[in-house]
């Protein structure tokens, strides 16, 4: 079984695959530039103080994103 959730709901250490980006314009481009497109696998590495920003591992690079941006990324997780 798999389900679509916003990336924010991923726990530390959990992995998922990007299914779509909800943002438009410049933020969308910026995220795409980092290699975040449909199908990219993404891992939540570490949440920052107060849960914001959050560090993700994307294509072997660690990138910190703010909550508002992360919320626009929808991912698919497999759950048991």
């Amino acid at each position: 079984m798999s389900q679509n959730i916003p990336l924010t709901q991923l726990h530390e250490g959990q992995k998922a695959q990007v299914s779509m980006l909800l943002s438009t314009g410049n933020i969308r481009r910026r995220l795409q530039d980092l290699g975040i497109v449909a199908g990219t696998s993404i891992e939540c590495v570490q949440k920052g103080p107060g849960g914001d920003p959050i560090a993700y591992k994307i294509r072997n690079t660690i990138i910190a994103l703010r909550l508002e941006d992360v919320n626009t990324i929808i991912v698919t997780t497999k759950f048991k």
Partner: peptide, 10 residues
């Protein structure tokens, strides 16, 4: 308002 930001942790 605070804008979006991306920060790489090298």
């Amino acid at each position: 308002l605070p804008s979006s930001f991306t920060l790489e942790l090298p």
